[in-house]
Computed example of a mutant assay.
Amino acid sequence: MTEPNFPADQATDADIDFRSLPKVSLHDHLDGGLRPATIIELAAEAGHELPSTDPAALGQWFRESADSGSLVRYLETFDHTVAVMQTRDALFRVAKEFVQDLAEDGVVYGEVRWAPEQHLRGGLTLDEAVEAVQAGLDAGVEEAAADGRPIQVGQLITAMRHADRGQEIAELALRHRDKGAVGFDIAGAEDGFPPSRFKDAFTYLAENQFPVTIHAGEAAGVDSIADALVSGRALRLGHGVRIAEDIQVDFSPEAPDAQPGAGQEESGVAMVTLGRVAAWVRDRGIALECSPSSNLQTGAIAPFGEGIESHPFDLLYQTGFKVTINVDNRLMSGVNLSDEYELLVETFDYDLDDLLEITLNAAEAAFLPLEEREALVEYITEGFQAHAG
């Protein structure tokens, strides 16, 4: 397939209807994507106290609390969302609305990650929790299709890093393969809880040919990424932005007219040298599930600078890494995927060709059979061509 080369006059922010572009969402947490109004209604039913019972004020509270520069503080906001997701009806509703919001945003394929072990306080079993979410996802997909917004969604069954239920959750994921579960993940506090804690579970998954993505390179550095690749056999990296710590960029002043990637020096030629881990990730096309706004909020890009322009996304993109665009947690960051597309266009001057390439990175990294990935690539490409008109 030959990718289209869109006219330059289609590249400006004003020319792009970001929501109409067909998008792929690989890194999106179910408990980080609730509607504030839904949280308020479910909290009233559960008797859970919230910081506010006004939807606008509650949404603002989540965004301000998450915008601390600390992953630990960021994760604390989930105490409220998880608290209202403890019954079958609540899980069904949240999952259904999750799909509705994805489809409204132009997402045509999404993988929804969540940790069933955190949703058992109301008496559900692990399997009942997964079945409730799948029923909600199916209902959302059916409703979106009826509205002319086709979307396909799969579950990423997640184990919490600080718990000791890795093998149990891996077995849960396998019980639900072919019934909605498409992959496995570990999440939670990364620093101090390496993937090697779940080594046996990852071996079990590999023996059963079940794909794995691992949060790595967000709150910890290159060693965490290496462990995800070795102990976890990760096919994708959740965030993975700190792989840039294994990249050395040197500048030569010999060609002052050169145009280095965004975030680099304004003049000169950038000479890029990859470390062994970075080279392994790039050369094998291991996708990076980058979430620009979230990465700024949690301090994941602090080693590279303070603002979004310091995000290594463009460095990684320009040097051939399989970068993808994601939201991580729509509620906490106050963004959808269209917003993240627009943010990258504004920050790095990307055009439709860039956005298509990055979107196809995600489609090709989806935990789908080859034939379905090829069909998804074709569908997305046609959608971008229709946008270019």
Rank of each mutant, 00 (worst) to 15 (best):
A366D: 01
G334D: 06
L91F: 04
G307W: 09
D246G: 09
R73Q: 15
K179F: 07
F251V: 11
T53W: 00
L91D: 05
F193T: 14
R233A: 07
Q385Y: 05
A287N: 00
W114M: 09
R276S: 15
R88F: 01
S52H: 06
P292F: 10
P260D: 14
L288K: 06
E97R: 07
A189N: 14
S25Y: 01
D314N: 13
T273Q: 13
L91I: 06
A386R: 15
F367Y: 09
A146W: 03
D351H: 08
M160Y: 03
N208G: 06
F384G: 02
I247M: 01
G59K: 03
A56G: 07
A139S: 09
I214C: 11
R282V: 08
S338I: 07
S310I: 06
T12E: 06
T12C: 03
E245R: 11
G59T: 04
E49K: 01
I214N: 13
D283N: 15
A216Y: 07
T38V: 12
Q209I: 07
G188I: 11
V133N: 05
E372H: 14
F251A: 06
A279L: 08
D147S: 08
D283G: 13
V377L: 04
A115F: 02
T38C: 03
G221N: 12
L21A: 05
A219V: 11
M85L: 14
D283M: 12
N295H: 10
D314M: 11
A170V: 10
A83M: 02
G238W: 12
T53S: 03
P51A: 05
L21M: 10
I186E: 03
I358Y: 09
E97V: 05
E372Y: 07
S65R: 14
P260W: 12
S196Q: 10
R373D: 05
F18V: 02
L355F: 08
L355E: 10
V82H: 00
R149A: 15
P312G: 00
P22T: 10
D54I: 12
T77Y: 00
R93E: 15
Y379A: 14
N295S: 11
K23S: 10
E3G: 07
G299Y: 01
E371F: 06
A278P: 06
I301D: 08
I247Y: 00
L237E: 05
I40H: 00
A135D: 14
Q259K: 12
D105G: 03
P211M: 08
H311R: 03
L337I: 14
A220H: 09
R242I: 13
V277N: 02
I225Y: 01
E76M: 12
G320I: 08
L352Y: 08
P292D: 12
T2D: 10
G240I: 05
P116W: 04
R276W: 09
N329E: 13
Y109T: 06
P116I: 01
T324S: 15
L368I: 00
H27Q: 14
D9F: 13
P292S: 10
V277A: 04
T213D: 03
D164N: 15
E142D: 12
T359V: 09
T12F: 05
F198W: 05
T125K: 04
D223H: 11
V269R: 14
L235H: 08
E342S: 14
I225Q: 00
V323A: 00
L370G: 05
L235G: 15
S231P: 08
S196K: 12
D351N: 13
E342Y: 02
G263I: 07
V222D: 00
Q264Y: 11
